[in-house]
C-alpha cells in the first residue's frame, strides 16, 4: 500500500523488533489510516503492540521497518527534524508524567515558551484558557502532587493542547485512575472529539468508544486483526480472535 495523502496519520508496514537480536516482534506490519477529525480507538490484549504503535507516531520508538506520515511529513525519515513533528503531535500518558517541580500553569506554558519562544503573557493567557476548558481554572498555582489523579490527567491533556497539536495520542489515559475519576477525564476527551480533534486513543473504555470513536482497531500480536465502526465491531466482529477478546473484556 502506498501513502494516502488524505490522511492526518498514515501508517504503512510498521514493524518493530526489540531485543539484542530482534527476537521480540512488537509490531508485525501494521497499516492504518487516520483521517483529519477522526477518533480512532485501539484495543487489544497486553503486549499486542498498542503502545509501541502509538509511540512510533512521534518517534519515541524508531520503527525497524515501514513508514509513518503525520500531515504529509514522513516521521520515519531519519533526516527529518523530529522536534517539528512532535510539536504537532500531542501525547497523553497513562502515568500523566506532569513535571512535578512546576505549577499546573507552568506545566502548560513551559513547552510553548521553550520550543515556540512564546511571550510569557501570551502563553499564560492561552494556558489559563485551556485550564478553564478542562475545568481547572482555580488550580493554576497547584503543583501536580496537590492534584488528584483525574485533575493531573486533565492538566496533562491541557499541556499537550497548549502546543496546538494536529493530532492527539492517548495511551490508556484512564487506566491509572480511581473509578470515580475516570468520567471527568473521558468527558474532556469527548469534548475534544466533538470539537473535531484528530485522536488516536488506546483504551478499553467501551462507553467512550461508542460515544466518540469513528473506528475501533483490534490489535493482537503486533498485527491489526480487524477494523470497524464501534457498533459493528463490538456487536458483530468477524474474526475469531476479536470475538474472544471482546467476550473477555465486555
Amino acid at each position: 500500500m502506498a501513502y494516502n495523502s488524505d490522511t492526518r496519520v498514515c501508517i504503512r508496514g510498521a514493524r518493530k523488533q526489540f531485543g539484542a537480536s530482534g527476537e521480540i516482534v512488537a509490531l508485525n506490519g501494521v497499516d492504518l489510516d487516520v483521517y483529519p477529525g477522526e477518533v480512532v480507538l485501539i484495543i487489544g490484549p497486553s503486549g499486542s503492540g498498542k503502545s509501541t504503535l502509538l509511540r512510533s507516531i512521534n518517534r519515541l520508538e524508531t520503527l525497524s521497518a515501514g513508514d509513518i506520515w503525520v500531515d504529509g511529513a514522513r516521521v520515519t525519515d531519519p533526516a527529518i527534524d523530529i522536534r517539528k513533528i512532535r510539536e504537532d503531535v500531542g501525547m497523553v500518558f497513562q502515568a500523566f508524567n506532569l513535571f512535578p517541580h512546576l505549577s499546573a500553569l507552568q506545566n502548560l506554558t513551559m513547552a510553548p515558551r521553550t520550543v515556540k519562544r512564546r511571550e510569557k503573557t501570551e502563553a499564560d493567557r492561552d494556558a489559563r484558557r485551556l485550564l478553564e476548558r478542562v475545568g481547572l481554572a482555580d488550580k493554576e498555582h497547584a503543583r501536580p502532587d496537590e492534584l488528584s489523579g483525574g485533575q493531573q490527567q486533565r492538566v496533562a491533556i491541557a499541556r499537550a493542547l497548549a502546543m496546538n497539536p494536529k493530532v492527539m495520542l492517548f495511551d490508556e489515559p484512564t487506566s491509572a485512575l480511581d473509578p470515580e475519576m475516570i468520567k471527568e477525564v473521558l468527558d474532556v476527551m469527548l469534548d475534544l472529539a466533538k470539537e473535531g480533534m484528530t485522536m488516536i486513543v488506546v483504551s478499553h473504555e467501551m462507553g467512550f468508544a461508542r460515544a466518540a470513536a469513528d473506528k475501533v482497531v483490534f490489535m493482537d500480536e503486533g498485527e491489526v486483526v480487524e477494523v470497524g465502526a464501534p457498533a459493528e465491531l463490538f456487536d458483530s466482529a468477524v474474526e475469531e480472535r476479536t470475538k474472544r477478546f471482546l467476550d473477555h473484556i465486555l
Binding site: R86, V89, M91, N97, F99, H101, A160
Partner: peptide, 30 residues
C-alpha cells in the same frame, strides 16, 4: 528522575538538551 519525564518533554517538542535543563536538572538538584 522517572523516564516518563524525559519522554513527556521530548513529546512536547523539546530537544534533549532543553529537556535536561528545564525538566530533569531542576528535579535532580532538589
Amino acid at each position: 528522575v522517572p523516564k516518563g519525564q524525559m519522554e513527556a518533554a521530548l513529546a512536547l517538542g523539546l530537544s534533549r538538551r532543553q529537556a535536561l535543563r528545564k525538566v530533569i536538572l531542576p528535579q535532580t538538584l532538589l
